[in-house]
């Protein structure tokens, strides 16, 4: 099939926009429209990045945040997909459980913060819990929706050829929802990355969210921006990694129609 070469514009154009953006930012902070204390200049932020890299503290924060996101996310996915399959395949379970799944899905995970701290104190666990709460319910709902949208002809063909039980699940139901599952993973991983920052601000002693909160308390707005830049870049990185899943040959059909 077509082999896609990486075109220069896929990195040159964004680089150009970044240069223009930073130049505008530098001009704005030099103009003195905003008080210096609340609008750090690009050079200060660059120096802040250097400081953090030298001290090595930022790497620990990154690792702490990534650990929490990965753990909470994987737990939510590993438990959410099976529950979504059950609800999608079994009408009774759907009738019984869907209202509650929707209830919790509509509830901002941040509403759990008070209890997260009360139950789990401070550290990894409250953040993992909040990430779990933010990923689990959307995963359940979209797995269920993906299952209900499988054309019935696939199940009929499968039955015609004698696929039953576990084989039906592994050869028909799961491959049929994979493209939608991958999209859901990309969306919810982004969500998890949003939530970890908020969670660490309140219930953390380290992590990128705590880095931002700590810098704010120390009136180091340059470090706040450093945290923001790192969070944004890692967010892009996570999505890039998950996007690789769309290249699996047996899911391409979901993206090429």
């Amino acid at each position: 099939m077509k082999s896609k070469k990486i075109q220069p514009r896929s990195y040159l154009y964004p680089l150009g926009v970044a240069v223009i953006g930073i130049a505008l930012w530098a001009a704005l902070s030099a103009s003195g429209v905003f008080p210096h204390s609340s609008f750090p200049a690009p050079m200060e932020v660059a120096a802040g990045i250097q400081d953090e890299v030298k001290q090595g503290r930022m790497f620990q924060d990154i690792i702490a945040s990534l650990f929490r996101v990965t753990t909470g996310f994987l737990l939510a996915v590993v438990l959410g997909i099976p529950l979504g399959l059950v609800i999608g395949l079994h009408g009774g379970s759907k009738a019984a459980l869907l209202p509650f799944v929707n209830f919790f899905r509509s509830l901002s995970p941040l509403a759990w913060i008070p209890f997260a701290i009360l139950w789990f104190g401070v550290g990894d666990v409250p953040s993992i819990f909040l990430i779990f709460m933010s990923v689990f319910f959307p995963v359940v709902v979209s797995t269920m929706a993906a299952v209900s949208s499988i054309p019935s002809v696939h199940f009929r063909v499968a039955r015609d050829y004698g696929l039953r039980g576990v084989e039906m699940l592994t050869q028909v139901t799961i491959p049929a929802i994979m493209p939608q599952i991958i999209t859901t993973l990309r969306v919810t991983a982004g969500l998890a990355w949003l939530v970890v920052v908020a969670a660490e601000m309140i219930a953390g002693r380290d992590g990128l969210g705590f880095l931002i909160w700590d810098a704010r308390n120390g009136l180091r707005n340059d470090l706040v921006v450093v945290g923001m830049v790192v969070i944004g870049l890692i967010g892009i990185g996570i999505d890039r990694i998950l996007m690789q899943m769309t290249r699996i040959p047996s899911v391409r059909w979901g993206y090429e129609r």
Partner: peptide
């Protein structure tokens, strides 16, 4: 034994 050939493609797109 019976085999069925369907209207729109009954092939599994993931296989």
């Amino acid at each position: 034994t019976v085999r069925m050939v369907y209207q729109q493609s009954g092939l599994f797109p993931w296989k």
